[in-house]
Design a protein around this nucleic acid. Structure first.
Lengths: 145, 145
DNA sequence: TTAAGTGCAAAATCTTTGCAAATGT
DNA sequence: ACATTTGCAAAGATTTTGCACTTAA
């Protein structure tokens, strides 16, 4: 039974199971990163909570999705753009975390500036999260004004 | 019984209690941010875990300390530099999170560059965490090479 | 067939809440 | 004396672990 993400899973030596397909299906429909609690809510009882944990962990390790820790310390997941692989996440873009709707957006068009670190420090990855109000929440608050 | 941080607590209309003094004492001896688990370890059973939660929450609200969520989603705490107040955290500097020792450093001498967000988005705060290897872990790994 | 993946139950953590006792002012 | 803060107990939430059952290859 061919499913939408068979190729992706195959590529990473993962078995093509229904739960994995569902998770990929959900993430693919969303343009923003999705928090673990939200994922649980969407999936409901179709997938066991433990299975979800394991799927997300596996996908992250394989470089299929990446994890974004938001300003509350909650994990959010989104598809990797560009060249993520098992050993390197190419994820050096900015994320925007709305304080109102909690949404996490990938701001792809603004790249992270280069940073000069003190002697002896070497950087592997950079996480930059801008928190504030997103466009949707901005306009809905104007309506009520 | 005058204690080291009486003035600081007074300034924020907080009672000068032993647990609060201990927390401030610990944080003041450390040049890096301290994770909640580490704090618990240092404090041991002198302070109830719940009390620690509440103290940290209060201090953060008052602008005495600030919370840094590290790359693992764990809360780390450090004294506020500059002008933090109850209503605004002036905390726009870079943090460095060592993947080896887990230490969180405040990189004060490098300021966060200005970011242009898409239309409709407004920024309130910025969190920038560089992860990699700190100077101490760097040199200790060289010794073993 | 068999190794990988899932689901359930249960343990281990982490965080919050309620309330009585203790403490600072 | 009074409001705040603490400590304990208990509830709630999150995350991990173990193991038997199921499924893809």
């Amino acid at each position: 039974m061919a499913r939408k993400f068979d190729h992706l899973l195959e590529k990473h030596n993962l078995k093509k199971t229904a739960p994995r397909n569902s998770v990929l299906e959900i993430l693919s429909t969303r343009d923003v990163a999705t928090s673990q609690p939200d994922l649980e809510g969407i999936i409901g009882k179709d997938i066991d909570r433990v299975t979800l944990y394991r799927i997300l962990k596996t996908f992250e390790e394989k470089g299929i999705i990446h994890k974004i820790i938001d300003i509350n310390g909650t994990a959010n997941y989104a598809f990797c753009h560009g060249d993520c692989s098992e050993h390197h996440h190419q994820d050096e873009h900015i994320h925007f975390n709305c304080v109102s709707c909690q949404g996490v957006y990938c701001i792809n068009d603004v790249s992270i500036p280069h940073i000069n670190l003190p002697q002896g420090f070497s950087a592997h990855a950079i996480s930059m999260i801008v928190s504030g109000v997103c466009d949707k929440c901005q306009s809905s608050s104007e309506e009520n004004a």
